[in-house]
Amino acid sequence: MKQPARMDLLQGTLDLLILRTLQGEPMHGWAVSERIQQISEDVLRVNQGSLYPAMHRLEHQGWISAEWGVSELGRRARFYRLTAAGKKQLERERENWDRLTTAIGRVIELA
């Protein structure tokens, strides 16, 4: 299997990615990491070791909530869903991200 060039995630962006990924439907942890990888066409690979601590932190913040459900394996899995507070947080983090990328873009273009 060919390994595409991996990029380390910027500090703090993992939260944004998790929240955005959960915007559609409830998912379990593995699916979140797979989805991020797929959509980014294997550019972004979530360090699986930091995924779960991040999700538990978000859960404590009240931005996502967890619930046990039955997975495609027929086995119990923990499904995470975005909460109302999480939606607001997602918007805030998106705005921050946009401002950051615009600013970096301008510096790269014009400096």
Binding site: G29, W30, L73, R76
Partner: peptide, 21 residues
């Protein structure tokens, strides 16, 4: 126990992916 189960499930899914390959 729930943490163990959650991690265990993750590993099982990951292993299944590799088996599919």
């Amino acid at each position: 126990r729930e943490l163990d189960e959650e991690v265990g499930f993750h590993l099982a899914m990951e292993a299944r992916k590799y088996q599919a390959h």
